[in-house]
């Protein structure tokens, strides 16, 4: 039961984007469509799960003075793996996400979970935490991405879901739209929490 809570806490209660406000740069940058949001979310989840597990395994071998560089090397390796594999097998998504794949290295969620969780917990719990947080991040990206894609392009996952007479609110898929949608969602979550 405790493990299950460890898994689901990242979805809403400790959602990395809406509650902890971590990893906002990719959140703002890649959520102009749901497809990109899913691609980015899955890539980050993959990195998060594996970096958490490796760091949990080697936590006792690393002197605390050099733990941050050691974590970064581990994270950067997995990010590079994701970058190469995506480029080889999903070139379309890789092209869209572009620079933001390598930038997963400096995504605060990943180093944050390594430092705050994986370095203090065992392998199983670390993997569960990584998966949960990663999926929470993905969920947040998908929510923002769907709102922006529906409003800004009248589409969802590339399919037209609104009638042709709908004139898209272009600003939603431009940069200001990302800030607006994320800000409003964060505000609504706080409103609900404070009630």
């Amino acid at each position: 039961m405790r493990l299950f809570q460890e898994f689901t806490k990242g979805f809403v209660k400790e959602n990395p984007v809406f509650v902890m406000a971590l990893g906002l740069c990719p959140t703002l940058a890649v959520t102009s469509s749901v497809e990109n949001a899913i691609g980015m979310g899955m890539a980050a989840t993959f990195v998060l799960a594996f970096s958490n597990s490796i760091i949990s395994l080697i936590k006792n071998l690393i002197p605390s003075k050099i733990r941050i560089p050691a974590y970064i090397v581990v994270i950067a390796s997995f990010v590079t793996i994701v970058d190469m594999v995506m480029n080889a097998y999903f070139p379309e998504i890789h092209k869209n996400l572009g620079l933001f794949i390598p930038l997963i290295v400096v995504n605060c969620i990943i180093l944050g979970r390594a430092e705050a969780f994986a370095s203090k917990n065992n392998l199983l719990r670390s993997v569960i935490d990584g998966l949960g947080m990663g999926l929470g991040f993905t969920l947040a990206l998908i929510v923002i991405g769907s709102i922006r894609e529906i409003l800004g392009a009248g589409q969802l996952l590339g399919y037209n879901i609104l009638p042709a007479t709908y004139k898209p609110v272009l600003v939603a898929i431009l940069a200001p739209g990302a800030f607006l949608v994320m800000g409003i969602l964060m505000g609504l979550m706080n409103l609900k929490k404070n009630k």
Binding site: I58, K65, A70, V73, I81, M84, N87, A88
Partner: peptide
């Protein structure tokens, strides 16, 4: 400290090189 970091980076680059040998031709 330096030695530990060295080991980690060597392992990491080894793994990356191995995977790169698969993906590079495809890319």
């Amino acid at each position: 400290l330096g030695f530990v970091l060295l080991i980690i980076t060597v392992i990491a680059s080894g793994i990356l090189a191995f995977i790169n040998s698969f993906t590079e031709p495809i890319i």
